[in-house]
Design a binder for these strands. Sequence first.
DNA 1: GATGAAAACTTTATAAG
DNA 2: CTTATAAAGTTTTCATC
Lengths: 156, 156
Amino acid sequence: MEIRPLDDIDRRILRSLQRDGRLGNNHLAEEVGLSPSPCWQRTRRLEAEGYIKGYTAVLDQEKLGAPETVIIEVTLNRHDDAVLETFGRAMAELPEVLEVYLTTGEYDYYIKVAVDGTRGYEEFLRHKLYRVPGIQHSRSTFTLRCLKQGGISVPA
Amino acid sequence: MEIRPLDDIDRRILRSLQRDGRLGNNHLAEEVGLSPSPCWQRTRRLEAEGYIKGYTAVLDQEKLGAPETVIIEVTLNRHDDAVLETFGRAMAELPEVLEVYLTTGEYDYYIKVAVDGTRGYEEFLRHKLYRVPGIQHSRSTFTLRCLKQGGISVPA
DNA sequence: GATGAAAACTTTATAAG
DNA sequence: CTTATAAAGTTTTCATC
């Protein structure tokens, strides 16, 4: 079920649905230069094979009251599996947290949070991050402006 | 046109559409406990007022041949508006680049890229990043595992 | 792959309680 | 807000070339 590589039309379907996740099959077919029926089959195949993981509404962080994006890097004071895992899970459960990555290098975790200003940030640190045990050191970077944000580009 | 604050039902609509961007109005209405007609009006309002910025298909980075996510922080050797701006735009145009943020602190830019292993990463550095003029210093962090990724949580 | 057709469902608008 | 209606369009399946 995952044998065939993507062809040009598959990639066009992915690009179109990435641009507009609610595109109907008829419009999509027209956009990619196919008749509706095979277009529909390809789209279902791309979903079934996992190229398309899902569809989502993209919401506005500012309008929802968390205009600041802050990057927090964290080192833990122990590095056994259990501590690393527990910390990551605790972070992932917090609503302010947008992203959690376990990383190589100087820090163990890389976390991105959305907060309402320095106040919101302080609150997050004091009431959420610093209450999770095991943090040795953390370093925060406020973002000033986002120039790009989004999913992977479908290769040519 | 942007006077009214969100109520509980609006927030449920946002959460449902974030979870499934292709939910039809009837299912959505049922999910949020409303009849289809007002549900449809609220959804259009949330779009028109910008709470919903759009809809997108979420694609699989691995399946599309770029399984590694690398975080690159960059300092530029000059900090006038033109240099900062030009660098950010050049980064945003590269297909490997998923995110570009201008930041406070030690580095000027924070960039997230998707590449195919250390090979793909080296190629990105040599053929793309290092060909952009003005870089004083950069620091790369490979991510090992992603524990969370997604948009903002709709507040309670 | 293209076409066509049919049933079920969705979208969009409008009117009335 | 709800219920109801209705035309237009979409989705999904299926048979055929």
